[in-house]
């Protein structure tokens, strides 16, 4: 066990014998990991936003200002029974006026318009997009809503459905190729550093062999070196990402977005450290085998 720990620390110590090579490798791994981490951070926050909205789309329905109040309220009662509708919010002209007043942050007093609001009765429908035939569903819902009595206008952004579909498809398509590409870059960088270490220490390793060192005795510190470079590089990248996050976390927290950027969950960070460490070790092994 003593020998194990001695070789483990020797593997790390050996890396510092060529500090420039170590610095360059760590810089390369850190930059690649930072890039990968930033990509994961963007994905993570996009997914959070989609989850927060539960993958919903919104329809906003405006009735004619002259429409009969009771008839409109009867229609509102039936809205929640429609296919895909998860939430219905309704606004009488006066309620709509209140909301408008709030959006001005009380800078403008609209109370004098109470009882003679020019705004139309409005309803906002949050709908869950079905898994299949999303565009067809959106078109049919839009037609149904437009056909309701006294409806003057229905606002709906078909891009929401398209974006949702595209985003899910994009994340499925791009996630693994990008991650595999970045891991491959890390593997090549670490592998080359270990090869360089093998070349510069060729005589020393030859002497070790001559004095009776086993293959494991010679190779284990080099594997530890690969592991250390992978873990250290990803830790530095996470640190850098944390620093960048500190500056950008409130970048989108402004009207009308109100989006707070979240950092990667600790499980993601640990996976990144473990994965990069494993890749570093594996590439060292390949370099040693070659």
């Amino acid at each position: 066990m003593m020998v194990f720990f001695r070789l483990f620390f020797q593997g790390i110590r050996d890396l510092f014998r060529v500090p420039w090579s170590l610095c360059m490798t760590l810089a390369a791994i850190t930059l690649v990991c930072f890039l990968g981490g930033a990509f994961l951070l963007v994905l993570h926050n996009f997914n959070l936003q989609i989850e927060a909205r539960h993958g919903n789309v919104q329809f906003q329905i405006f009735w004619n200002t002259q429409a009969d109040k009771e008839e409109v309220q009867k229609t509102w009662a039936g809205l929640s029974a429609m296919e895909g509708v998860v939430n219905v919010r309704t606004f009488t002209p006066d309620q709509a006026l209140d909301v408008l007043g709030e959006s001005f942050q009380k800078n403008i007093d609209l109370d004098w318009m109470k009882g003679r609001s020019p705004l139309p009765p409005t309803a906002i429908l949050d709908c869950q997009v079905p898994d299949a035939e999303q565009t067809k569903w959106a078109q049919s819902t839009l037609s149904t809503l437009k056909a309701l009595p006294h409806v003057e206008k229905v606002s709906f952004n078909p891009l929401q459905v398209d974006l949702l579909t595209s985003w899910v498809g994009f994340t499925k398509m791009a996630f693994w190729p990008v991650i595999v590409f970045l891991l491959l870059v890390v593997a090549l960088v670490v592998g080359n550093t270990i090869k360089l270490a093998l070349l510069t220490r060729r005589e020393e390793l030859e002497i070790l062999r001559f004095v009776g060192a086993s293959r494991a005795y010679i190779q284990f510190p080099l594997l530890v070196g690969g592991l250390f470079q992978g873990v250290m590089g990803s830790a530095l990248a996470l640190g850098l990402l944390g620093l960048a996050f500190h500056f950008i976390k409130d970048l989108l927290n402004i009207p009308p977005l109100w989006i707070t950027i979240s950092f990667l969950p600790s499980m993601h960070c640990l996976t990144m450290l473990g994965l990069l460490g494993a890749v570093g070790m594996l590439s060292s092994l390949v370099a040693l085998r070659n």
Binding site: E203, E206, I207, R209, F210, V211, G212, S214, Y217
Partner: peptide
């Protein structure tokens, strides 16, 4: 398995092979 041999057989080379 050559390290087993080298633990029984020591060698002094002409070019010393020291660190």
């Amino acid at each position: 398995r050559k390290h087993f041999l080298r633990r029984d057989v020591s060698v002094v080379y002409q070019d010393f092979k020291i660190l």
